[in-house]
Design a protein around this nucleic acid. Sequence first.
DNA 1: TTGAAAGCGTTACCAC
DNA 2: GTGGTAACGCTTTCAA
Lengths: 348, 348
Amino acid sequence: MSLRQIANSLALSITTVSRALGGHSDVSDATRLRITREAERIGYVPNEMARRLQKGRADAIGFVIPGGPEAFDDSFFLKIIQGAWSRLEDLDMDLLVMSAPQGQKEVKLYRRLVEGRRVDGLILTRVREQDDERVNYLLDTRFPFVTLSAGKFDNPRIVSLDVDNHAAFRLALRRLVDLGHSTVACGGPRDIRYSALRLDAFHAVCAELGIEGVEINRDASLEGGERIVADIADHCPDVTALVCNADRVGAGAMREMMRRGLVPGRDLSLICFGDSQLTRLMRPRITVLKLPTEDMAARAIDLLVRLARCRTNGPNWCCAIPMAPPPDDDAILSGRRSLRLNFSPIAV
Amino acid sequence: MSLRQIANSLALSITTVSRALGGHSDVSDATRLRITREAERIGYVPNEMARRLQKGRADAIGFVIPGGPEAFDDSFFLKIIQGAWSRLEDLDMDLLVMSAPQGQKEVKLYRRLVEGRRVDGLILTRVREQDDERVNYLLDTRFPFVTLSAGKFDNPRIVSLDVDNHAAFRLALRRLVDLGHSTVACGGPRDIRYSALRLDAFHAVCAELGIEGVEINRDASLEGGERIVADIADHCPDVTALVCNADRVGAGAMREMMRRGLVPGRDLSLICFGDSQLTRLMRPRITVLKLPTEDMAARAIDLLVRLARCRTNGPNWCCAIPMAPPPDDDAILSGRRSLRLNFSPIAV
DNA sequence: TTGAAAGCGTTACCAC
DNA sequence: GTGGTAACGCTTTCAA
């Protein structure tokens, strides 16, 4: 089951067989036919490791699921896997999945991937607001990576995919304003970029619409969501609506409301970012700012492949990926209990 | 950054460098020290592809997440990834994750993995009761694989990891009997092995305890769970308790009970297999037969590595893995609203 | 249009 | 102890 085998049984050279199977034009049709037939017959499939060694690439993309049991039990990452794989399959590449808690050990894992040339590129999530060690390391080594939901960076070398948070908040907050709300809270941490960016967008849009915006910083976890609702109930009597930066947070908020006998939509309106089982299961249904996670991951793969190609040609990547058109409001599936928003990913 | 580089700058042969770094004993301490120092200095990390090509193995395990959007949004698979990775990391191996809908395309994916020698072994979930194409293919090619939650097979060449379903139902049903239930239903499909096995165990334990057991076959999905509750409410007035074979099913059951105004624990007692966010979020809390998914996946890796080793030595694997001791009842964390059962994985 | 040969970076088998 | 050589299976350059 190797090129040699085919070459031998056909009394041809390995070179010719390789080129025939590789689709090169400098092989006569007759020879090519004989070769493909024989390859078919013995069920030839190229040895990937040999090919990769020769080509000097891994034909694989890596994705590290950020650690901790809480972070893990989240179908967001499953969606990224799904989306990334849908493209990788077509490209005949592999997806390496790992997990690591944030910190020392995490960077070690990235080193392993980069230095062992196990992958050609990486997908990053949960980028930290300050000094993300992974980003620093990858930037230093000039290794291709794409961040998801981390917004636009000052450093033009960082390629990032994100939704338009301002547009999202415009949709969400306008809706709340229409319902008569004038003081709205937004909950999520400040140390993770995606959440910080959403908080910023929240304030900006509040200002635009002339409503009062209250920021509540808690972990992006179930417990964080619970505490946000507790904070509101105990300390912010004016707040009548809450936007959560992640669906786990929304689920926690929901749980605390239940416990306190608060009725979602009556005592406190709830909207959350996310796109998981969690939000679909909530009763009563809440409005969800649906994130195009799979699409973003798929797009990330395309970008990574491009970046990896550039890399072989020289040290300077181009990351001039244009902004996407403004979010598509038509995708709103309205309904009192279930408003779902779709907006296209933008490349930064 | 290669052996050659180190060899050159130290005026040694590549062979010696390789052996020194590989920890072979036939290298003088002085030489080894010089070599390790130099390797450290230039930050040498072996090229994995070269190593794999030479060794003739992939140093990777594959896991295909079974397809369909419903199946995908399930943290069960995330737990498998987590568990598998925890072992693979120590073994310095990779985890390849893919996804495919059940059917033609799925087997194609497995072929790709096997024939391209991309992995040394595979983890299988959701094995079908009849003629699982993947199992047939892998058996034909004698490729190492381990099934999760598929019970014991007649074919001794299939290595499988599962919990003790009988013990699980004994715990669950005894509890229900103690609460006064005498007619209990169990819901799940028959075409997937894990569910069929649980249904069988259900009937066996019902007979043991002398209670009435009603089997309801619906998809292992949210909607399936809803229909099971509908079936019970509409057609089985005697049934006062329900055991669901998967947490998604339990979540669906819960949802339908809510809709019908049925109170879990009063109108219908609910217990379900599973170990996901879903069950933790349900209110009121329900009793969960907690599956040791991560542990099983970790153990599967160890088995796969052993199988892969055997394979190189000859065509006959040994799969003489002893049964684990009986499930550990001490692990029951009792409580009216939250009974969680742990039981150790058994190897079949 | 075909083939010989070099090379990718390792490891392993033998000599010395 | 150490080093030359072959081999893993492929792609690519250069001659013929």
